[in-house]
Design a protein around this nucleic acid. Structure first.
Lengths: 197, 197
DNA sequence: TGGCCTTGTCATCAGGCGTTGACAAGCGGC
DNA sequence: GCCGCTTGTCAACGCCTGATGACAAGGCCA
């Protein structure tokens, strides 16, 4: 996970950015409590004290990481008629789970980070607030129409639940390819039904 | 949360049971990482060292708590035609969230404890194993028929996701009563559809 | 070349954790 | 009454965490 082993040139902006990306990868793979400042610092090849200086506290770093992720609205980018199929594919086939330390292009990355740290009391406030403003509310707006809040809650629940189910079952490893396809199909239909009303 | 403040009579079985119940309440309300041995000990009115002696390690205590909960199969008790409505009501109206330190009669308690500690690396092995043997597999068996694994995954995902959605939204506090009823109704239909095939 | 601000390191702190082994107190049997 | 086992307490250990302030070194400017 070490991103750079030659002496880092003295460049505050680049270093700050490297810390942010390393932290994003860590928070994507581990819960808030399991991510240590020293871990992130080691990934970048820097002393942990520097993170404190650049970002303040660990919670501030967490917020900065969430802000650096693409907005939850991006989940709704693309053809509306494909929403269900798109999301189902990303979750069932794990395209959402890939979490390389790149520019944060994964559309679901922010949501995955939030899901990872659910249950951590220290991150609870941030997680709760961010999931509402970045995920629930945009989804509700985008769905629109009568019962939008209700349908959005259900869609969000299904998305989050299947993401967790994926974690708990090691990527649906107990399902063969045909079953995975069936799972993605059923999930897509359910989601699309909620979007279309 | 202190269950007893008069000097506890010297009774190993009763003390062990009291520790188990206090731990169950704690693990139901907080994640594995957030529950401290000293917290549980204080609830019972006992020294933390005693827990180590009676249960071994913290992980052993966690396993003992999960074993003490009603089996996940109990979720499927009752009229099969009511499964969706029953589960939806318990989640939307929070009957599942009540977690008093009683005999562990809540049917969803075991599942709630597992959900609380998702994301904790220390508890991951236990959570993964228990959720499969106590929740996924019984549900798959109970659903039965063609595509049972697929439908069970979807049902489980919806149940878990809505339980988490409930947490993140403070008990669906942004929904009025009519919307909650609509949510429960839609969720019930979706679940029942998965059960019936 | 010398001064100085920036960038990064190091040692350290206070606090929390789970766990351990030595000790105190209750209590039944001889 | 005293022994010995059980039940519970206490102090401490080693480890890890996030955070802090003093210090070293790079690099620009005069």
């Amino acid at each position: 996970m070490v991103l750079c082993d030659v002496p880092r040139p003295r460049n505050a902006n680049a270093t700050r950015q490297a810390i942010l990306e390393a932290a994003r990868a860590r928070f994507c793979a581990e819960s808030y409590d399991d991510v240590g400042m020293r871990d992130v610092a080691r990934d970048v090849g820097v002393d942990a004290a520097l993170i404190s200086r650049y970002f303040g506290s660990k919670e501030d770093l967490f917020v900065a990481v969430l802000d650096s992720c693409k907005n939850g609205r991006d989940l709704m980018d693309g053809d509306r008629a494909d929403f269900g199929a798109r999301l189902a594919r990303e979750i069932v086939y794990g395209e959402a789970a890939a979490c390389t330390p790149d520019d944060g292009s994964g559309r679901m990355r922010g949501l995955l980070i939030l899901l990872r740290s659910i249950g951590s009391s220290k991150a609870m406030d941030v997680v709760q607030h961010t999931s509402n403003t970045r995920f629930f509310e945009p989804l509700t707006q985008w769905i629109g129409g009568a019962d939008a809040p209700v349908r959005a809650r259900l869609a969000a629940g299904l998305i989050m639940g299947m993401a967790i189910s994926r974690e708990l079952s090691d990527g649906f490893s107990n399902l063969d390819e045909a079953q995975k396809a069936a799972l993605a199909g059923r999930m897509a239909d359910a989601l699309q039904g909620l979007v279309d009303g």
